[in-house]
Measured scan of single mutants.
Amino acid sequence: MISLIAALAVDRVIGMENAMPWNLPADLAWFKRNTLNKPVIMGRHTWESIGRPLPGRKNIILSSQPGTDDRVTWVKSVDEAIAACGDVPEIMVIGGGRVYEQFLPKAQKLYLTHIDAEVEGDTHFPDYEPDDWESVFSEFHDADAQNSHSYCFEILERR
């Protein structure tokens, strides 16, 4: 099963200049909980913004210009990325925008964090048809001392 995991502000903004323009430790914990011990696929820009392999996960970098870091697996196509994951129950696609666009048609599940923030962004989550998805989990949280904005975790499964 292919799943996408993303944090989205208003207007589906997911990033600005290779960074997330908010401070939500709870979302980072949600991300870790849902990706640990699963292969993660990301684009080169996302890889560069993280700066290191995510521990406890097979890191697969999709790029037309593969790098030389041998701590991760470099691939040039969506099919190659899927094959590099091996026989696993769930593959997690973690961004960025172009990689989400490439995998959305193949995805069966979306793990979304909806952030109540209007922020400037240069990267967006692809538009998706809500009628194609069923919400199977939703959990709202107010902003607090650690988390700069209110947010809602949601899991959607393709109908």
Rank of each mutant, 00 (worst) to 15 (best):
E90N: 06
G56R: 05
Y111C: 15
E157S: 10
V88W: 13
S150E: 06
R44D: 02
E48S: 13
S138Q: 14
V99I: 14
A9P: 01
I60L: 12
R33I: 12
D142N: 09
N37H: 06
I82V: 09
I115C: 09
T123L: 01
D122W: 01
F137G: 07
D131V: 04
A29S: 04
A26V: 02
H114Q: 15
V40I: 09
S63Q: 05
S138I: 14
A29F: 03
K58Q: 10
M42L: 09
I91L: 15
A19M: 04
D79A: 05
I82G: 05
G51T: 14
D127F: 14
S77Q: 13
G97A: 09
Q65H: 10
P126G: 07
D70W: 07
K58C: 09
S135V: 06
A143W: 06
H149T: 06
L36T: 08
T113A: 07
N147G: 03
G67D: 13
L24W: 02
M16D: 02
K58I: 06
V75K: 09
G51H: 12
E118Y: 11
V10H: 01
H45I: 01
K58L: 08
A81Y: 02
F103S: 14
Q108G: 10
E118R: 15
D144L: 04
A19R: 02
D132A: 08
G67N: 08
D122Q: 01
F137I: 15
L62T: 15
E101M: 10
P105W: 08
V78I: 04
G97D: 03
V10G: 04
A6T: 15
H124T: 13
E90T: 03
G97E: 04
P89D: 03
I41N: 00
L62H: 09
W30D: 07
A107T: 13
D87G: 10
Y128Q: 03
A9V: 10
E80G: 08
I60V: 10
P39D: 03
D11Q: 15
S77M: 14
L112Y: 08
P130N: 11
M92G: 05
G86S: 11
K109G: 10
V119A: 04
A145I: 08
S64A: 12
P21Y: 01
A81H: 01
C85I: 15
P89Y: 07
A26W: 02
V136P: 10
